[in-house]
């Protein structure tokens, strides 16, 4: 029994020390991590709508979005979209103008298979945006359909469809909402 208590104490001490070290590390890296995520979002926004000079974070009915402003006038919306891909969710930002035409899509986070599904977000060297996402630009967000408006990636139909469906559904829902004037 005595020995058991000793084991317990040794383990507890080590765990305690480990937690202390980790809590400390977490505290010093946390601001940097959060800033990085914010920066990532900001970069995506200004890539989608380079002509906007500020973005207003808002939300309606559970949809988080940014209103893109250019010298005080609304020029479009960047909507946070989450789709369910092959291995997990795909987090994106989809930019549309007020008529619902897609201005650009950026993937923030995805867990798709490298070489297959992950190619939704792969840039060829020298390209400014992933070829798959580029196909969406200028299309009507409400009527998006895989294989009609955008070509699916070979061997990764599910990932391609996940992006297309999620963008269409969320943006349509969003457009309906702002039309009925329910935004805050």
């Amino acid at each position: 029994m005595n020995q058991l208590i000793k084991f317990g104490i040794v383990l507890a001490l080590i765990c305690f020390a480990a937690t202390l070290v980790l809590a400390f590390t977490y505290e010093i890296t946390k601001p940097k991590i959060e800033k990085g995520l914010e920066q990532e979002e900001k970069n995506a926004l200004s890539e989608i709508m380079p002509e906007a000079d500020s973005f207003d974070a808002k939300s309606t009915d559970g949809i988080d979005y940014f209103e893109a402003l250019s010298s005080g006038k609304t020029i479009g919306y960047c909507i946070k979209v989450t789709g369910t891909g092959y291995n997990g969710y795909i987090r994106m930002i989809a930019g549309i103008d007020e008529k619902g035409t897609i201005k650009g899509i950026r993937v923030l986070e995805q867990y798709e298979t490298p070489g297959l599904g992950a190619r939704i977000n792969e840039k060829k060297p020298g390209e400014k945006e992933p070829a798959f996402l580029k196909q969406f630009n200028g299309k009507n967000a409400r009527a998006l359909e895989i294989k009609k408006d955008v070509d699916a990636i070979t061997g990764a139909t599910i990932s391609s469809k996940a992006v297309t469906d999620a963008v269409r559904d969320t943006t349509s829902q969003f457009l309906d909402k702002i039309k009925t004037g329910k935004t805050r």
Binding site: C15, A18, T19, L22, T25, Y26
Partner: peptide, 10 residues
């Protein structure tokens, strides 16, 4: 959440 690795492995 940062204790995920250590707690899960334990």
């Amino acid at each position: 959440e940062y204790l995920r690795t250590i707690s899960f492995i334990l």
